[in-house]
Amino acid sequence: MAKGKTIVKAIKGRAIPLPGDEIDTDRIIPARFLKAITFEGIGRYAFFDERFDEGGGEKPHPLNDARYRGGSILFVNKNFGCGSSREHAPQALLDWGVRALAGESFAEIFAGNCTALGMPAVRLSREAIATLMEAAGARPETEFAIDLETMTIRFPNGELPFELPESSRQAFLLGTWDSTEGLLSHVEEIRARARALPYLNGFR
């Protein structure tokens, strides 16, 4: 049951500002919620310890804020998703309803995991992110459009350019962000490469 090619050209929706530099994957999903053999229903654990106190009571957090309910774009700051390689982090955000992130910078493994899930993580300057967070905060009903063809985020008050590694952009536009099929199309070259490597081949 291979996934067909799904082209991602644009993500449109309301946004959730989630400020803070260096928000790591342990904060996005604490390790105790990794004790499962599927990703099913993992969205309920997104930012769990920041959203709930020990007694299960809600704490103030953008994901608990009724004004942002239904938002599908996260606005974040620097090095979002640093730390662990756990794909559970972007899987939790995806399952929660997130479809794209816009931030100042992303940790590399996290950004790669987002791409592999068809969820763009695009980069803007600190000033641009501040503008976006302010726009979403002032009017949570504001619709934003992340356009991968024009490489801009459009919203009623303006349009801001973003950056995205060209290979990730192509993966979305070509619909090859789920990379398995494309890699497997070179199976003969893969076997040839394996045979040519000295190690596990007796170093001959």
Partner: peptide
């Protein structure tokens, strides 16, 4: 290098990764 679970799937099926 460390990888996510979708990349582990790639690795199991193809022994390769798409990387920059």
């Amino acid at each position: 290098l460390g990888i996510g679970t979708s990349q582990i799937r790639d690795l199991l099926a193809t022994q390769t990764l798409a990387l920059r």
